[in-house]
Design a protein around this nucleic acid. Structure first.
Length: 894
RNA sequence: GCCCGCUUAGCUCAGUGGUAGAGCACUCGCUUCACACGCGAGGGGUCAGUGGUUCGAAUCCACUAGCGGGCACCA
């Protein structure tokens, strides 16, 4: 069998995914075990307009690692894919399309527009689902969902109606965040505060019946036209006498009262605040408290209304600001203007400055829902956040929660299931039929607004499983096991899923929440479309392969880190290493096939076999612990180290002589079998992280057949993705073998170091003389003499109790107090050699001093655990042995 | 203003009470029969600073500085 020297990711990525998908391996039904434990994840639904970015790739990697891992462990595994209809984004996308045809959505009308959106979705939406296939995501496509699907829409209406009937959804006039560009209301979470350099204007309002004036400070002079009062702190001596008096509002003919309110901070500005209930959230509250009028002077397009006066009506808010300031100046009522930095509210999506407006909208009362979420958190610790610190952020937000504005003035989305009769009466119902029955008339008009996209997302963990129908899926897979997402949607999404899950399912939607880190650009900035600094995962896939990208992303874990292509490159090299290790095993596999029985404990195992089995089992144990604790970085490090250092650098080298032996026979077959079997196990460990290369190689291994699959998938065709994940076997962890192997590694490394220091040509074979006073070590060296000779390229390896090296030798001291020497007649510069060993002595002395000082400290010996004290005593003993040996070695130079 | 995180080798990052780690970069030597996307051997860190707790601190606590993030306020 010809295997190329370099791994070609594209070739492996071409075939396996479609085979897996078509064979139904991703579906939970692949699992034939009725009693199998269950593992489920719902994907954070990407926007239907979206395409794959690094954040998706990161999250999907984590989810796929967990899903593939659990699947191989025999769990009935479901990862639900799907997409979000993404109200505003999608509507804007299609609106832009229409613009090319010189049409607006109003030209089409609502019904036809919505039809166009569906058409767009059909033709070009959901690019991301193709990209997810490329990623290797083992989602069950047969259960793919879309938030606008009929069944999910039914769930939305059901929730709306039930909440309404309980009085938890209400409609009312409230001050809200209005985006003048998108022409819709926004929830608090969709507004971002941006610091801005601006001005603070000090305006004077004359007191009626007096020559006095009260000065107020404002960043938005144009809103003064809507002032219906001025507020001062009741304890503010300066203004006490004005409370109750009347002010003449300049530029208008209106008179407004001075009121006292604790909200006012006497320290800020002038201590007197203009109150504009219709255009400021705090003023709105104050206005309610004092019964002040609401005068609307700015409309939904951020232009001045008639109420602002004939001169200004129709003017843009910023133009109006200039005009107002000008007029105040002319009237001599502009006291001063100072530079002032403040935060401005912008629409998160289009960055337009939000206008607070009083508007008739739908809201959800959050306190009762919030209490459910807080209760399950305090009583059951659910969800359990990883990293834990996010649970504080989550709790703080819940504690300060405010009502949720759920209506949006859009056409694309779930239309609010409320209907109005001709007489203006309202009915809320699951359908038009139900509404007709309730209202007693068919002459109904449905509320034109749609629901916030996050309303349907909040139901995702149960709506995707069939709710409100009690489906088998719902019973089996809810609550889900874990939610994987980025931290920026903890409030928008995670918390709302918990609240809705508790409310409608009576149980938390997921046990754990794993928050991934953020991949920043190389300068440490967030990647964004506007900054054009994003790295396209698909390009990285093309350049380095999906597997390399995945394992690199997994290693990022939950901390933010800068994008570093070199890292992907190093994992590409890792993939190549795996490829070549397998290549070696395959090139020497004649007569052998995978046989897990050769990985059992047995008396006749060689040291390197006992050692690799111990390493394999420790790796399995550590890997499982790391995955269980969401320590993906650690999991990757464990795998990398095991495969490269333990398996490739040592095991393959140590078993090479047997495996490549010219002599056919049982020993060769056995070593080949064991090599293949260890490789099989290693590939299984790697598979959740690197699905393509592991499948590609595994299928080539002789003996890779259905009998290696987890029993739950026994009837499936061979695939590593359904192979049983290795389990740790305690009896194979062999500390003695690890200790012995460490001695061998130490000897080999020091001998190689001597060769290197002495500039011995790599091809040149030398005599190596090893001595050790320790009989056990001598027998360890002897037992591995052939391999040691091979690894250090020794023509002769002599092992003795006392050093027999000639004076002209390069020498080094071994752990455990032995010596390794290479005779180099005529090549040794004795002075140089003494210096080299002198450095070694220095190091040992320094170490000895450190340890001795600690041991000489009585309180250390008294208070430190005995284990630690013994550890140090063992170390000092070893240092003493090495020091003595070194002394001897130096003397031998004389 | 409040809260959270980060500061460790030239770079990107692990490590959270007991001998400072990885990858990349760097130095030296190698076309050694799996792999030059490789092999072997090296060099490189007062773990941001100060103080404290402790037998012992990169690790725990407090403060300081710098960077990043979130929340609130902003007349």
């Amino acid at each position: 069998m010809e295997i190329p020297k370099q791994y070609d990711p594209k070739q492996a990525e071409e075939h396996h995914y479609s085979r897996w998908e078509q064979a139904g391996f991703f579906a939970p039904e692949a699992n034939q075990d009725r009693n199998a434990p269950v593992f489920s994840i719902v994907i954070p639904p990407p926007n239907v307009t979206g395409s794959l970015h690094m954040g998706h790739a990161l999250q999907h990697t984590m989810m796929d690692v967990m899903t593939r891992y659990k699947r191989m462990c025999g769990y009935r595994t479901l990862w639900v894919p799907g997409m979000d209809h993404a109200g505003i984004s999608t509507q804007l996308m299609v609106t832009r399309e229409l613009k090319k045809e010189r049409l607006t959505r109003h030209d089409l009308g609502r019904e036809e527009f919505v039809e166009r959106v569906w058409q767009w979705k059909q033709e070009s939406g959901g690019q991301i689902t193709k990209q997810m296939r490329r990623e290797g995501a083992s989602v069950d496509w047969s259960r793919e969902k879309f938030t606008m699907d009929e069944d999910l829409s039914r769930a939305v209406r059901e929730v709306f109606v039930r909440l309404y009937e309980e009085g938890m959804i209400y409609r009312g006039n409230r001050i809200v965040n209005w985006c003048p560009n998108d022409q819709t209301v926004l929830s608090d979470l969709e507004v971002e505060k941006v610091p801005q350099a601006g001005k603070l204007y000090y305006l004077q309002y004359p007191v009626k019946g007096s020559d006095e004036r009260i000065t107020v400070a404002t960043t938005r002079p144009e809103t003064m036209l809507g002032d219906t009062g001025v507020a001062v702190n009741p304890r503010d001596e300066r203004y006490r006498r004005f409370v109750g008096s009347t002010l003449l509002l300049p530029l208008t003919s209106r008179e407004i009262p001075v009121v006292a309110d604790d909200f006012v901070d006497p320290e800020f500005g002038t201590g007197a605040v203009k109150v504009t209930p219709a255009h400021d959230p705090n003023d709105y509250e104050m206005g309610v408290r004092h019964g002040l009028d609401q005068v609307v002077v700015i409309d939904t397009h951020a232009r001045m209304t008639e109420a602002a006066g004939a001169d200004l009506a129709g003017l843009d808010r910023y133009k109006a600001r200039e005009a107002v300031v000008e007029q105040f100046e002319e009237l001599g009522l502009l006291e001063r203007v100072i530079d002032y930095e403040f935060s401005i509210s912008k629409c998160e999506r289009c960055k337009t400055v939000v206008e607070p407006l009083i508007s008739l909208q739908w809201f959800v009362r959050m306190e009762p829902l919030r209490d459910l979420a807080l209760e399950v958190l305090s009583k059951e610790k659910k969800p359990r956040f990883s990293p834990e610190s996010y649970d504080k952020v989550y709790t703080n937000w819940l504690e300060n929660i405010r009502d949720w504005t759920i209506s949006r003035q859009l056409w694309w989305g779930h239309q609010i299931p409320a209907w109005y009769t001709e007489t203006g009466e309202m009915v809320v119902a699951r359908s038009l039929a139900e509404a007709t029955a309730k209202a007693g008339t068919a002459k109904l008009t449905q509320d034109p607004d749609v629901l916030d996209t996050w309303f349907s997302s909040a139901l995702w963990p149960f709506s995707t499983l069939g709710w409100p129908v009690e489906t088998d899926d719902l019973k089996t897979f809810y609550p889900t096991s874990v939610l994987v997402t980025a931290r920026d949607i903890i409030f928008l999404w995670v918390s709302r899923m918990v609240m809705m899950g508790m409310k409608f399912m009576g149980r938390e939607p997921f046990a754990d929440v794993y928050i991934t880190g953020t991949i920043l650009d190389p300068q440490g900035q967030r990647m964004s479309k506007t900054k054009m600094n994003g790295v396209d995962p698909l390009e990285v896939f093309d350049k380095y392969g999906v597997d390399a990208t995945r394992i690199m992303l997994a290693s990022v874990g939950s901390t933010d880190s800068r994008w570093n292509e070199k890292q992907v490159e190093s994992y590409r090299n890792f993939a190549n290493k795996i490829w070549n290790a397998a290549r070696f095993a395959l090139m020497n596999s004649e007569g052998a096939r995978i046989d897990p029985r050769t990985l059992a404990k047995s008396e006749d195992l060689a040291l390197h076999d006992r050692w690799i089995l111990s390493r394999l089992n420790k790796t399995t144990r550590d890997l499982q612990a790391a995955i269980a604790g969401y320590q993906f970085h650690e999991a990757v490090q464990t795998l990398y180290h095991f495969f490269w250092d333990d398996f490739c650098d040592w095991y393959i080298e140590l078993t090479k002589a047997d495996v490549t032996s010219e002599a056919e026979g049982p020993q060769r077959i056995q070593s080949r079998t064991r090599l293949l079997s260890v490789l099989d196990q290693a590939l299984r460990l790697l598979h959740p992280f690197m699905p393509y290369i592991t499948e590609d190689l595994w299928l080539r291994l002789p003996g890779a057949a259905s009998d290696l699959l987890h029993p739950a998938y026994a009837s499936a065709s061979p695939t590593i993705m359904l192979a049983a994940f290795p389990t740790m076997r305690d009896e194979l962890i062999d500390e003695q073998a690890e200790w012995e192997m460490q001695a061998v590694i130490d000897l080999v490394t020091r001998a190689r170091n001597l060769r290197s220091e002495m500039n011995i040509k790599p091809g040149e074979r030398v005599s190596v003389l090893v001595s050790s006073p320790d009989e056990q070590l001598r027998s360890v060296y002897s037992a591995s003499a052939d391999q040691i000779s091979r690894l250090v390229r020794a023509s002769k390896l002599q092992i003795s109790a006392a050093s027999e090296a000639p004076r002209a030798s390069a020498r080094a001291v071994l752990t455990g107090g032995g010596e390794v020497a290479i005779p180099l007649e005529g090549l040794i510069d004795f002075e140089q050699e003494r210096q080299r060993l002198g450095k070694e002595q220095e190091k040992l002395r320094a170490e000895a001093v450190k340890v001795e000082t600690q041991l000489a400290n009585p309180s250390f010996v008294e208070r430190a655990p005995a284990e630690k004290v013994n550890e140090l005593r063992a170390r000092i003993a070893d240092i003493a042995q090495r020091t003595a040996q070194l002394q001897q070695t130096v003397e031998n130079l004389q």
